[in-house]
Design a protein around this nucleic acid. Sequence first.
RNA 1: GCCCGAGUGGCGGAAUGGCAGACGCGUCGCACUCAAAAUGCGAUAUCGAAAGGUGUGUGGGUUCGAGUCCCACCUCGGGCACCA
Length: 834
Amino acid sequence: MSTEAPGTADTGTSYSFRDLEARWEPVWEELGVFTPKDDGSAERRYVLDMFPYPSGDLHMGHAEAFAMGDVVARYWRQLGYDVLHPIGWDSFGLPAENAAIKRNAHPAEWTYANIDTQAASFKRYAISADWSRRLHTSDAEYYRWTQWLFKRFYEKGLAYRKDHPVNWCPKDQTVLANEQVVNGTCERCGTAVTKKSLNQWYFKITDYADRLLDDMEALKGHWPERVLAMQRNWIGRSEGAHVDFAIEALEASEDERKVTVFTTRPDTLHGATFFVVAADAALADELVAPEHRDVLAAYQEEVKALSEIERQSTERTKTGVFLGRQAINPLTGARLPVWAADYVLADYGTGAIMAVPAHDQRDLDFARAFDLPVRVVLDTGEEDPAVSGVATSGEGTLVNSGELDGLGKAQAITRAVEIVEAAGTGRHTVNYRLRDWLLSRQRFWGTPIPIIHCPDCGEVPVPDDQLPVRLPDNLRGEDLAPKGTSPLAAAADWVNVSCPSCGGAALRDTDTMDTFVDSSWYFLRFVSPHYTEGPFDPEAARNWMPVGQYVGGVEHAILHLLYARFFTKVIHDLGLLEATEPFSALLNQGQVLNGGKAMSKSLGNGVDLGEQLDRFGVDAVRLTMVFASPPEDDVDWADVSPAAAGKFLARAWRMAQDVSSPAGGDPETGDRALRTVTHRSVAEAAELLDSGKFNVVVAKLMEMVNATRKAIDSGAGSADPAVREAAEAVAVILSLFAPYTAEGMWEQLGHEPSVANAGWPVVDPHLLVQDTVVAIVQVKGKVRDRLTVPADISEEDLRELALASEPVQRALDGRELRTVIVRAPKLVNLVPAS
RNA sequence: GCCCGAGUGGCGGAAUGGCAGACGCGUCGCACUCAAAAUGCGAUAUCGAAAGGUGUGUGGGUUCGAGUCCCACCUCGGGCACCA
């Protein structure tokens, strides 16, 4: 093939990525250069890539993400920090289970075989990881601590069970968290999600809604804005009021009761013309009048039959039934008919609303469908909603609202809250969209929930000294097939235990945890992966946390990152951890596309990483990933050229070969012009690396190589110490991107391995100062001339020089000057009178 | 509908308010070669013979000076959405 990479010939003197890979991988392994000293002798820094799920071998996406993380790790190491850069696997999860069912095997076989494959690939890919800290979440030694943490959550009331309608994936036969439902379909398999009422385990993440929101302030500027926006959106804070509505008794014997609604628009209380409760909430059954019970039941059946996709459609005409009862508006005393409808959600707010059709589109749609009155209370100057069918929600003046009349919207909101607060029928409140995290799953390959159900004692946690609750190892193949209840229930000798509390016969909880639980604390385990007294050594956590740079895909913007933040806060509250945030900086690397589209089997546009590595070499692939675009942007493999990256690497390598001066010479005696380029480039590279512009750093490296090549061929010559200095600087910086080539260059230049320990090149500040600079001369903002002037030229002199310039005079054409801007020594702008 | 982000050559992309297009891909030309590959050198926004003009999605604005800041809009990408 014509695109074959250069240097495949094995001549010994030409660039061969195969030789370099074969030579250095074992050397690095032996040297152990990537294990942190962890002795406090240098400032510690923690860089982490989102750990992979072991689905087959590594793919292009891994190659991109880990190339980015590795640049950071290697850069920090060159700067002299003690760097923690661990690797592990998120190894529980459905695919292993499905593979096991298909092959009549145990999920562990598939999982650990894949992990070995990926580990070998990571080593080949030259990830500078500390392999001694490797962990897998499916190891009993790991999930023991996942269970331990679950128990601490349980003790704090942050893990609880409840009966509730939950998201159910009919294909995977398991429940899903809200975060795992995308547009009404299962995030994993795309099947339409249905609702099912089940008793399930939840983490009370809603207790942390305000802190999860407020603490994002500190992440601003260090996390991508869009991730913060997504989390903000997901938490969905909304300020408003709780208002109590009395419910009229139907007969004297019945107790009067009240129902509280949540509203963001207490200013429109006078505009409420009816009252709606969620059809699937217990409230609907409690409020329905006896003679309406059958109608409600029929309606509820109808609602249940709808898929989530249908139910969420805003196109649908509103449906609902009258419950035969009235609610009393606490502000006006008006009687409002109580309806049940599916456009009101049972698990948001209080599951009941006051309907203000004039100023809420959904209420208006409902009012028009059932011929209910529309009462305008805020004059916005727009058309009457009852006529237009469009609810008005803008600014305006209150009308038809008693003492609120004449107020603006914001004032009216404040005033209305004051009124209901004074009357004891309402209060200011903050509501969140965030729901509790449904964590139990009816699947096998996950962390068992360490709870025992005793007929006498109820829920009894498994004592700490009996952890881990290991998965039974006698289930395989069909035993694991999804059947709607956990496969663990089939392991009779595992399920049946004696109650730790009373000793009587009891049953283990047979659900396993969502795998997002496992990944919510793995970054903490990495600080002390072999610690046996707890999930992590508090001392080590104090030393390493928080993660200084986290790298991973934006697809985890909500799920993993929100959960990990939640866990960190709870663990902090448990007194185990100082940090309150897990990741102080986040980089979302882009996707690797092919032909403008995500690679996929169905499109047949996949690019195989192994093939690319065979053909172009590890370094060329890594360099291509980094050079193609800013780290956060997508890389389209159809637009880039790993062959060109290989060419550059060969060019850099040849440059090192051509250096003919011995090591240890004095660069001060070398070519000044080349030294200036080298030192300035090194300084710029550091700045660019600090600000994450890795692609531009590669451009700088190319400039350095170009300049050095020129110096060798037609300037100072190969023996000049400045040439050696330049080649060494290139080797060190290149080691962040192309470690094999850089190591080869470093050896060629007469140094001991590893270049990873070389240290960042020291910049001589004198070489950054220029003697002369090119000043640009503008006339009315347009460049007319360029003058080479002393760097310390005075404003007056520069102005004189500019005025003397021939092209400037031509452009001025004799006109008088109105303004002259002089920014010595860089710029003069002459503005003529007319 | 609401909330983020982005629009720069044929392509990927550079550019603390101060020379737009660094670096690379591609293309064209040249050297080396019997020839090719590899390598090296040069050209490459656009109109124009040149002088010079025009150019960073569109329209305004701020400024001596705007790709960069402000306002409005258009297009694309992403997130949320019957959340009261």
